[in-house]
Design a protein around this nucleic acid. Structure first.
Length: 638
RNA sequence: GCUCAUGUAGCUCAGUCGGUAGAGCACCUCCUUGGUAAGGAGGAGGUCACCGGUUCAAUCCCGGUCGUGAGCUCCA
């Protein structure tokens, strides 16, 4: 019997029934057969040894494909589990999937794995790879599966089997002395794994539920070549060097103090200066874009938060109230109720809309201690918040403007790559279905008009309305949530907000919450990592350092310092009793964008010698020529 | 919040199998006046996170608190 196999390019070929993807690949080229890891048969990902019984389309997956990586990493997870079972027979295995970068496997073990355990496991894995077991797939009945894992005492696997839907094929993979319940597919055999490393151990709840037992999760990664492994480890190292917590300390940007409390940021002078620049820029642009800037209190009465629904829906993130004149006041976790108060302070006409209130509003939210993370996750932060109140017909256009405004800001800070998500109605939600549909449609249309590519995140909207989130990708391609644009059905209703329409009757305004940078704290953290601490000239706390070579040059150097400062260039001078190399090293370490070296030559020629951070000597400049250059760069935000 | 790890000088880190601690850098003083990433010498600096317990004796062992890290969970 012959079957017809169709290839991705549309060509097709006949083969004997029962042929495997591997055999097909071998027929094409030995190199291909060597490189492929799995195959997609029609819509299904299969082992390379899968016997093909009918006509099908085929697509081979290599390591560079997502699917190939998954198979590779998942198989490595199995090898790790086998090693663990060999070394610690009493350990129960849970699940071991491939993840974005590598894989993990969860184990139930009474005592925690130590670093030396990881070493031992790695050694055992190497043996298993050398022994080169096949990953052998077997499809078995439910009863047989239950019996098998009961025999091994693998209660987690039994729980999984019991939850598989009736009629689902149950497959196990056998590699030597190790058997695992697994859908597959897998590599052909264990020695396909060439380079691997176990990276860390941590606790993880069974099935991700904190009511369940905490298991021990071992993370690892693997690659087809040692070189790729090294490249990956290098990238991890690079990320570590850029860690904003580390750079924050090195560059003296910000700090957290035990005496004050966890998750509460102190912006040191240099960061304060940068923040000030960001805020000035932000305010200027908001006025230009038709926003009104407001300031509102940090606390408000319980009743306000009752009306807004925060006490019902958000209280776990709010701090305990304080008593003032026998009344409970809460510190604000959000700014919206205050902006609504301003809106409601008088009767509004449709002619005034849209009204846009913007505020750099500092809010406090309770975050569980374990989730705090540098500037990225804190307990007190400043949102670059705004609320837009508009008529239904204005909604779409306002969202288009918002998307444009957001892109303008993010690009100004050097971000070029984004991930955009549209989140739709969750299970638990307020508002009518048809309103949701309308609002979601408007957001979608705005995205289409803005020609921004986006993904839909079904059911991930907030309970009060659909939203658009924009994540920025930093220099290392990591995504950070910044912009969020959220439609709100809830608050205008709760606060009974109205405006008088053309028809002389009351209408309910639409409301949008939005933050573009997100929070200044997180955004600053992302900025630090994105630029690796090398801030662009317009943001650099010190833009130029003047470095005289010896005492003889102090006079001229001070004059240069003065001239630059008069031109609003943030300049400092190094009058230390040190050699030039030492002073340059200090300035380089501080990541100051430009250094001006002043020695005999410069005094004599009445010019300056310029050195650029990370680039070295740029040679001689006339001072005003250099100032022009700086101003140009500042203007261009480079 | 949970699991594990962790907290020693301003920073990065040694160290003590229980007898009150050490390096490099930074800081201060002096010498040196040096041309594009570390010149030399000397000095000062620590209740070893905090609170209890065990002990003749605790920075070290035990318990708790606080902080930090990696994850889990959470994230309007």
């Amino acid at each position: 019997m012959k079957i017809k196999i169709t290839f991705p390019d549309g060509s097709s070929k006949e083969y004997d029934k029962g042929i495997t993807p591997l055999q097909i690949a071998k027929g094409i080229s030995k190199g291909l057969a060597n490189e492929i890891l799995s195959a997609r048969l029609n819509e299904r990902e299969v082992d390379l040894t899968h016997k093909i019984e009918a006509d099908a389309t085929i697509l081979f997956h290599k390591f560079r494909d997502e699917e190939g990586k998954k198979v590779y990493w998942h198989s490595t997870a199995h090898i790790m589990a086998q090693a663990v079972k060999r070394l610690y027979p009493d350990v129960k295995i849970a699940i071991g999937p491939a993840i974005e970068n590598g894989f993990y496997y969860d184990f139930d073990k009474n005592t925690p794995f130590s670093d030396s355990d990881l070493k031992k496991i790695e050694e055992e894995m190497r043996k298993i790879i050398d022994e080169n077991f096949y990953f052998e797939r077997r499809e078995i009945s439910r009863d047989k599966a239950l019996e098998t894992f009961e025999r091994f005492g693998e209660n987690y696997k039994i729980e999984l089997i019991n939850e598989l839907p009736v009629g689902e094929t149950i497959s196990i993979y056998v590699q030597g002395d190790f058997v695992d319940l697994c859908r597959g597919p897998h590599l052909i055999s264990t020695n396909k794994v060439k380079a691997f490393k176990l990276l860390k151990v941590s606790g993880a709840y069974w099935r991700g539920d904190e009511k369940n037992k905490m298991l021990q999760r071992i993370y690892g990664i693997s690659f087809p070549t040692e070189k790729e492994m090294q490249t990956y480890l290098k990238k991890l190292e690079e990320a570590e060097k850029r860690d904003h917590r580390k750079l924050g300390k090195q560059l003296d940007l910000f700090g957290f103090y035990n005496e004050v409390g966890a998750g509460l940021v102190h912006w040191h002078p240099k960061a304060g200066l940068i923040r000030n620049i960001i805020e000035d820029f932000w305010k200027k642009e908001h006025y230009k874009a038709g926003y009104d800037i407001v300031y509102t209190p940090h606390i408000g009465k319980a009743n306000l938060w009752q009306t807004s629904g925060h006490l019902d829906f958000y209280s776990e993130n709010m701090y305990a109230p304080m008593k003032i004149d026998e009344q409970d006041y809460y510190i604000k976790p959000m700014n919206c109720p205050f902006h609504i108060m301003i809106y409601k302070s008088k009767l509004r006409s449709y002619r005034e809309l849209p009204i846009k209130y913007a505020e750099l509003g500092t809010v406090y939210r309770y975050e569980r201690s374990g989730v705090l993370h540098g500037l990225m996750r804190v307990r007190g932060f400043t949102q670059d918040d705004a609320h837009i109140f508009c008529t239904p017909s204005q909604l779409e256009n306002e969202v288009v403007k918002l998307l444009d405004f957001s892109m303008f800001f993010l690009k100004a800070f050097g971000f070029e790559n984004f991930e955009i998500f549209l989140s739709t109605k969750p299970d638990k939600a307020v508002g009518k279905d048809e309103d949701w549909e309308k609002a979601t449609k408007s957001l979608k249309k705005a995205l289409d008009i803005s020609k921004l590519p986006y993904k839909i995140d079904p059911g991930e909207g907030v309970f009060y309305g659909p939203k658009i989130d924009i994540k920025i990708k930093d220099a290392l391609d990591r995504a950070w949530q910044c912009t969020t644009i959220q439609f709100d059905f809830n608050l205008p209703e709760r606060f009974d907000m109205t405006y008088i329409g053309e028809d002389n009757s009351e209408h309910r305004p639409f409301m949008i919450h939005r933050a573009l940078l997100g929070s200044l704290e997180r955004f600053f953290g992302v900025l630090i990592e994105h630029y690796a601490g090398n801030f662009p000239l317009w943001l650099a706390p010190v833009q130029v350092e003047v470095i005289p070579i010896s005492e003889n040059h102090f006079g001229y150097a001070k004059k240069i310092l003065n001239d630059l400062q008069e031109q609003d260039i943030r300049t400092k001078i190094n009058l230390e009793n040190e050699k030039i190399g030492y002073k340059i090293r200090e300035a380089e370490n501080e990541k100051i964008p430009y250094m001006i070296i002043i020695g005999d030559k410069e005094v004599e020629n009445q010019n300056i010698s310029v050195r650029k951070h990370l680039n070295g000597n740029l040679g001689a400049f006339q001072l005003n020529e250099f100032i022009e250059k700086l101003k140009r760069e500042i203007e261009q935000k480079k």
